[in-house]
C-alpha cells in the first residue's frame, strides 16, 4: 500500500482522540427525546447527518479547498475556514468542531512537513482563522498528494466511524450492530462523494433543520455525556 495513504489514515485515526469521542453533534438530543433508540433509528439519523450536513458543509469544503490549492488561492482556504465556522448555527457544536480542529492541526503539524499546515496553525494561534477539521484534512491530503475524492471519502468515513462509536456507548447499541452500520454506509459514502462533485456554490452549507435544532437544543440538556 501507498505510504502516503497510510499517512492520511493516521490523521483519520486521530480524529476520535482529538475530541471526537466527546461530541455527538446533536445525536444525544435525539437519544434523550427517544427518537433515536436502536440501530435502525440511528442509521436514519446518520444518513441525514451524512447526506445533508456533512455533504454540503465539510465534504464540499474539502472539494473547494482542493480547487483553491490548485490555483494557489490561499485566501480562499481561510475564507472556507470562516464559512464552515459561521454557517454552524449552534455555538456548542461550532466550538466543539473548533476544538477538534485545533487538536488535529497540532497533530498534522507534527506528522507532516507542510508549510501550509504550519501557516494555518499560525493563523489559528493568531486568531485569524478558527480551525476546522475539514480544512486540516484538505491541507494534509493535498500535501500527501492524495486525490480530492479519496480525501473526502476518508474524512467522511472517519466521521461515520466516530459517530457509530459514540452511538454504541450512548444509545447503546452492540459493537456488532455498529460494525454492520459501518458496512451498510460504504455505498452511501461513495454516493456522497459523487453528490459533492455535483454541488453548486450556492448549495454550500444548506441546513438540515432537525439536525441543527437538536444541536442547538443540546446546549440546554441538563444531564448529558457529550459536550455537543
Amino acid at each position: 500500500m501507498d505510504s502516503s495513504l497510510l499517512s492520511l489514515f493516521q490523521l483519520c485515526d486521530s480524529n476520535f482522540p482529538s475530541g471526537g469521542f466527546s461530541h455527538s453533534f446533536g445525536l444525544e438530543t435525539y437519544i434523550q427525546q427517544d427518537k433515536v433508540i436502536d440501530p435502525e433509528t440511528f442509521s436514519q439519523w446518520l444518513t441525514l447527518y451524512l447526506e445533508e450536513q456533512m455533504v454540503s458543509a465539510d465534504g464540499f469544503a474539502i472539494k473547494l479547498a482542493y480547487q483553491a490549492l490548485e490555483n494557489d488561492n490561499f485566501e480562499e482556504i481561510w475564507h472556507l475556514d470562516r464559512l464552515l465556522t459561521v454557517q454552524n448555527v449552534s455555538q456548542e457544536t461550532r466550538e466543539g468542531t473548533r476544538f477538534m480542529g485545533r487538536s488535529l492541526i497540532k497533530i498534522a503539524e507534527t506528522i507532516y512537513d507542510s508549510e501550509l499546515i504550519e501557516l494555518y496553525n499560525k493563523r489559528i494561534k493568531e486568531k485569524k482563522s478558527f480551525a476546522h477539521p475539514a480544512i486540516v484534512f484538505a491541507l494534509a491530503g493535498n500535501h500527501l498528494k492524495i486525490t480530492k475524492d479519496t480525501t473526502i471519502l476518508y474524512y467522511m468515513y472517519s466521521t461515520v466511524i466516530n459517530l457509530v462509536q459514540n452511538a454504541v456507548r450512548a444509545i447503546p447499541i452492540g459493537q456488532t450492530a455498529g460494525q454492520k452500520i459501518i458496512t451498510a454506509f460504504q455505498p452511501k459514502l461513495q454516493k456522497a462523494v459523487t453528490t459533492i462533485n455535483d454541488l453548486e456554490e450556492s448549495d454550500f452549507g444548506t441546513i438540515a433543520p432537525g439536525i441543527e435544532m437538536a444541536q442547538m437544543q443540546h446546549e440546554n440538556l441538563t444531564v448529558r455525556i457529550f459536550m455537543s
Partner: peptide, 22 residues
Amino acid sequence: LVVYDNIKLEPAVQQIDVLGFM
C-alpha cells in the same frame, strides 16, 4: 462574514418529512 445561512427546502427532489430534516 459573520452570518451565513443557507436554507434550501426542495420537496421536488428531497424527502422533507424525515428525522433530521423537517
